[in-house]
Structure formats: C-alpha cells, structure tokens
Design a protein around this nucleic acid. Structure first.
Lengths: 213, 213
DNA sequence: GTCTATAGTCCGATAGAC
DNA sequence: GTCTATCGGACTATAGAC
C-alpha cells in the first residue's frame, strides 16, 4: 500500500467517470474519454472495476452509502421530529450541493436497461427507506404518523429535494438566481416546511378562500 | 394525405422511440432498434426527422406542448386557488400516468451534452413558468403570494410530481403498492396538500412538540 | 499495475434504386 | 416515401508485453 500517492488510479478513474457520466450520461460516454481525463489507459478500467457497468455500480454504491450515513446521523435518538428533519435537510442539501455530479449519475441512470444496476439500486433504496421507517417515523405521535404515506411522500420529498440539483442549469438560466450559501440555507428550510406543514398537517381554511376581488 | 392509414410511419417511429428511449436511454438506444420496432428502415428516421437528435427534440416538443396546454386549461380565470391547484394536479397526474415514457424521456434526458436540446428545453420550461407566474400566482392574495419562491418551489413541486413516475418500478418493488385509480386520485390530492399547506402556509405549533414518551 | 494493440460489434448518416 | 447497401468511425473488452 502506497499511502503517499496523491490519488490512486482507481480513484482518479472513478472521479472522472462521475463527472463525465453526469454531463453526458452513462451510455453516451466512452471509456476512452474517462481514462483520458484520469490519465490512465482503457485497460485500467477493466483491471480495477471489471467493466464499465461495475464502474457505474461503484459510483452508485458510494452515493447511497453516504445517503444512508446521513440518515443514520440524524434520525436515531429522542430529538423532536422538527429538529431531526431540519438538521437532516440541511446536511443532505449540503451533501448534494457538494456532490451534484455523484447524485445526478446515481439518480438519473435508473431507467436504463441494465438489470444488475436496477436491482442494486432497489436494494440500496430499500435499506434507506428502512432507516426512515424505523428511526424517524417510529418516533412520531400516532396522529401525525398516520398522515404519512411513505410510498407517496417518500418519492415526492426525495424528488423535491433532488430535482433542484438535476435541473440546476435550467434554474440558473430561467430565474437568474444566484445559488449561494444563503440560497441553500433557505432552500433546505423551505423543503423542511413542505414536510412539516404540507405532509404532516393541513389548515384548509387559509387556502380555500377566494382570491381578492 | 392518406388519412385512412392506421398510423403514419413518422408517428410509429416517434412512438417506438419514446418507448425505447424511456427504457434504455437516448444514448444507449440505436436507430436500428427503433426502426425495427416501428417496422420501417433506418433511412426513414433521417427522412422524417433529419437526425436522431431531432427525433428526441420532436418527442420533447410533444411533451412540453401538452404540459403547457394543461396549465392553460386550469390556471386562467377567477376560480379559487385551491380549486385550480387540485384540478391541475389531477389532470397532470392523469397525463403523466398515461404518458410515463414521454415524461421520462423529456425529463431525464436533460443532463446530456447536446447544446441544442438543453437550449430547447430551457426555452419551453421558461414559457411554462410564465403561465404559472401570470395566470396562477398573479391571482393569489399578496400575503400568500409572498410565501412562494418560484425558483425554489417550482422545481421542488415539479420534482415531487414527476419523481414518482421516474422511479415507479422501484416503488412497486419496495412498497408492494398497487398503483391503481384510487392510488393516483389520492396521490394528486396529497401533492396538492403539499402545495396548499406546505408552501403557502405553516402551522409550526403542531409539529414542534416532542415525541410521545 | 500499467501499458499498447487489436478483435469484434454497433453506431449514425447517406447514396442511390425504385 | 421507402428501401438496401455501405461508409467511416466509436465502442467495450481483452490478450499479451513489461
């Protein structure tokens, strides 16, 4: 083991692949382009990862491990639900902001036709859903927990969170919005609001009134 | 014009492409596979669409036109905001349910490296954002309108809506949920709740209490 | 571990017959 | 409008030298 090296060839390949897969898509990006960016030869991909598909799986493995770790860092314990949720959203937003390419690849490369990848993702997602169910939702009072339908709200909240990063170039283009620290701080809080008030509770009398005439 | 034919070759190509792009991804799917499914020859793609890229653009054009039309059908007029939102969500959910492949292709093929497609999508999204701003939000009372930050809530709500359809195979796998008419009816209402109560208003005193001990 | 060279396949586009 | 045949290039994977 040579711990002195800046980055191993394996790590450089993985990072180049993340960046290029995010920008061009898994199928559109050739190994030649990845290894050129990483400064190695094509044969190294198959030596270190076995195949292009396994390289993608290694990328997704890294992403889902981090997502799982973040959930485990915030959900167990006796803190109030609101604090858990707000803390979780802040950290997950920071993580997605700093690892947008990783998230983009791990999310958008779902629909493609590689059974190994689809099964792998389903298994990792199921594990993370388990953390939400047993560590976060189990601590809620009954009347609030009954508001939550995991098969509806789970993907919805996840989509609300992730879609910002997936379409960020369009957002910058359309809204002329500077995406700085303060934007992401309030972004995380707005999403937490959507869970706290949009999923857990309702106050119809405030929103059914007619518009001002 | 031969209006008697079941479907034109052009339409059959487009429909095969939607299905295959959704399943395998734009880059992973060859023209040969599309034309085989459509029962025509490769040359027909370039004859009718000009190129593979223009074929993708034609698909996205169809999707965004429909999205625009649905917004225009629900947002203008004096109906209460809640009714506009609930009616819109019901129709958009039905549309996405019946055109999942079209939506999947039109959404997920963003990040790739084709400048013409990215510009095209940005322009269509901007047009639809304009409908929301001028026809839906303009009718809200001031104190509610100030709660909405389009650059945050727009992509978030869109992501909450669409992500269900993008990850539907995983949902079926993980939650063992039958996705029938009644599921989608309540799905649309839950999402409307997230907008009405999660975006427009808040009621913190209900969600800050400690869990039951 | 890392390389070069190459095998074998598939790609998008188009020329030209009908 | 629709076809067949084909061009030039890019792809993944691997064999084999070092």
């Amino acid at each position: 083991m040579n711990a002195r090296e800046e980055k191993s060839a394996k790590e450089r390949i993985l990072q180049s692949a993340v960046e290029l897969f995010a920008r061009k898509g898994y199928a559109a990006c050739g190994l030649r382009e990845i290894v050129a960016a990483a400064g190695v030869s094509v044969a190294m991909v198959n030596y270190h990862f076995g195949s292009k598909e396994s390289l993608l799986q290694a990328i997704m493995d890294r992403f889902f491990s981090r997502i799982h770790d973040i959930a485990m860092a915030h959900f167990p314990g006796d803190a109030p639900f609101e604090l858990k949720i707000r803390g979780y959203f802040r950290e997950i937003v920071a993580f997605l902001r700093n690892n947008t390419d990783l998230a983009r690849v791990s999310f958008t490369e779902l629909p493609h036709d590689i059974p190994g990848i689809v099964d792998f993702k389903a298994e990792r997602v199921m594990k993370i859903v388990g953390v939400f169910a047993s560590e976060l939702l189990a601590g809620l009072p009954e009347h609030l927990r009954r508001r939550i339908r995991p098969e509806v709200h789970g993907p919805a909240v996840m989509g609300a969170l992730v879609s910002h990063f997936l379409v960020r170039p369009v957002i910058e283009n359309v809204f002329d919005q500077e995406l700085d620290d303060s934007f992401y701080e309030s972004f995380a809080d707005e999403l937490a609001d959507m869970v706290l008030y949009g999923v857990l509770h309702s106050r119809p009398e405030d929103t059914t009134q007619r518009k001002e005439s």
